[in-house]
Simulated scan of single mutants.
Amino acid sequence: MTTGLIDDRETWDTFVDESASGRLFHKWDFMKITEKHTGFRFLPPYGVFKGNELIAVMPLFQKQLHRVNVLLSPPPPLQSVVPYLGFVMGRRYDTAKQSKKESMLKLVGDDLESEFAALAPPNYLSITQVPGFIDVRRFLREGYQTRLHFTYLIALDPPLDEIWNSFSSNLRTKLRKVEKNGYRLEKSTDISIFYSTVAERFSDPEMSIPMISRAYFEELFRAYPDELGLYYLYDDEGAVTGVQATQEYKAFTLWMGAPKMTAMPGNEFLQWLLLQQAKHAGGYRHMENVGGANNENLNLFKSKFNPSLTLFLEVSQEDFIGRVARWAYSTIASKSPMKRKVLSYIE
């Protein structure tokens, strides 16, 4: 096994397309745009080869501040709006027997550890894998810490009426009521309203994080016009009552939405309309609702759709300096304006 750099965008993207665990977040342009707008350097893209065969790729982002060296995959989600990333195994891994999978993972893990050691030793290293990729035993044996994250999935295989009947009775009543009020869904390329709702959410002093620029979203939507969608829900008077950005790549993903905008259950109806769209489009096994499963305030709302709960795992390692940095972030800087200046990239 050897580790090498991949300098060809087409090779990288084709590998991601063919892998079961590849996500839009892994695509070459997505990561380059993320680098540009978050201040994290996208390291030369690593590939693990067996002979001439590329069997894994590993995207890493680096930042150094005040002598603290941080390696992350992905950059902090509140700055990059990327909830998970991590390494991607090739399609041969996806169909292999378990013994072969474990052998391949061990070899990939060994090569990645060698690459981490060859870099300036990170004070803090964090890798968050995509949902469903749970075999992180190689990292556990090396003393990495593990954090559990959750996401919601709604299976799209059953008939639509079966999916509808699985919703809570309270939700079905609300949806019927809204349906009679003349609401309409429109797909748009105008990010103005979407960005204003995101800006309002992220400018909350309690969050105290760097603002995500409008240019970041504009570049992403230009780069992926077919894979990124933007939907507005209008009431019968033409007022926007719901906003949702989606990723329509392998899974139909509710990526970013707006907080509740009116007294009416517009967000619930918007999600129901998008679920129907994903179902009728075909080719999607699941609709994923990113983020809601990790937020206690959203659990009750999201769970009314009767989704399944799925794990995604974060592994991390830190030295003494990294621990001190994390302590400073959580106890000193997190409740003051210093949070924007001192280690704002460690979550």
Rank of each mutant, 00 (worst) to 15 (best):
Y329K: 14
N299V: 10
L311V: 05
P159C: 05
E162L: 07
E347G: 15
R340M: 13
M89C: 12
V16Y: 10
L300R: 15
K27S: 07
R23I: 01
L311A: 12
Y152T: 04
S80L: 11
Y329N: 13
F133V: 06
S208G: 02
D157L: 06
E142Q: 14
E162H: 12
M58T: 08
A118F: 01
T11P: 00
E227W: 09
F252P: 00
V243E: 00
L171F: 02
T189N: 08
F133G: 05
S303C: 02
A117H: 12
Q244W: 02
V136N: 08
V48G: 08
L270H: 10
Q79L: 09
G182H: 03
S19P: 04
R184L: 02
K106Y: 13
D236V: 03
K260Y: 04
T95K: 10
L24G: 09
R67M: 05
E296F: 06
T3R: 10
M287G: 01
A20L: 07
N69W: 13
R285F: 08
I332D: 04
T95N: 07
S303F: 01
E227C: 07
D110Q: 14
L274G: 04
P131S: 05
T262L: 01
G4N: 11
Y249C: 01
F15M: 10
L175P: 09
P75M: 08
V108C: 10
S334T: 07
K339S: 15
V82M: 15
P307S: 00
S303L: 13
E237I: 00
Q98D: 15
Q62M: 14
L107N: 15
S208M: 11
W12R: 04
R222Q: 13
F217L: 05
G4F: 00
I33H: 09
D13Y: 07
E218S: 12
S99G: 08
M89T: 11
S330C: 00
P307E: 06
E115S: 07
Q98P: 04
V16I: 15
K180Q: 12
A333D: 05
F49Y: 14
P75S: 11
R92L: 11
M211K: 06
S336Q: 01
H37W: 11
G4C: 01
F116N: 10
Y93Q: 03
P44Q: 07
G238M: 06
S168I: 02
E268A: 13
G47M: 02
R214Q: 11
F269V: 03
A155C: 06
G132N: 11
R9K: 14
L160E: 10
Y232R: 02
E115V: 14
D204T: 12
A325M: 12
G257V: 09
T128G: 01
K302L: 00
T310S: 05
T331M: 00
A56E: 08
Q98V: 13
D235L: 00
R326D: 01
M207D: 03
G291E: 09
Y234T: 04
E314L: 04
A96L: 09
H66P: 00
P265Y: 07
V178F: 04
I332G: 07
R222K: 13
P158W: 03
R340D: 08
Q247M: 13
Q244A: 07
V315H: 10
V81Y: 12
S196K: 13
S169W: 03
V240H: 04
V82P: 04
N165M: 09
R340G: 11
Y329F: 05
